[in-house]
Amino acid sequence: MTMFGFRFPQSPAAAAAKLTSLAIAGTIIFGCAAPSERAGKPMSRAEFMQSRTASPPASRNDDMSVIDTLAPVPDTSNAIAIPQPPPSDLPIDVQPAQRDNAPRRTHPAALALLNEAMRQEKSGDYEMAAAKLERALRIEPRSALLWNRLANIRLQQGQRDLAANLAAKSNSYASNDTELIQMNQRIIAGSKSR
């Protein structure tokens, strides 16, 4: 980064992290992931969607609409009347009605940011995605889902310890959401199995 003739220092840690994530990506792409890595292998977006979606996954994966930050997002939990498109337009299952335990409810504003983050994650823009998720967490700090997504991004960046800590944080809000807890456990196990 140069400006006015000055160079901004890039931290060696950031460079190392980049290298690590490249290395991990390489391992995954070339299909020679060590067994120990499988436990902590990041879920692909499609996998994630599948696990989050109530409707049959096949019909959904290729047609993921991303909600714009400023676009309306339906939310049954909110007292404010926002016009509600059919539930099938929702990219992620966050409807409280479909779960018996409450913490799955995600605020529309946080949901909009989550969607942007997932779009950026998909295009490999991990730090941008993390920034979006941190904003979402300011709105919805006790969302196990948001913490889990942040953990996933850090894992994909090769920051396994941080990922495990974030996954543990997600677990502390997950109540009885066994799916989410399982995903978090995989991330935690992945960090320990090195």
Binding site: M1, M3, F8, S11, E134, L162
Partner: peptide, 28 residues
């Protein structure tokens, strides 16, 4: 979960291009 108190979240150049981010970091 221990997390060092943060004051800076990000740094941009004068023209608005990203320089550095100070991400949220926690440790159990």
């Amino acid at each position: 979960f221990r997390a060092p108190p943060r004051t800076i979240t990000s740094v941009l150049t004068a023209e608005g291009s990203p320089v550095q981010r100070y991400p949220l970091s926690i440790e159990k």
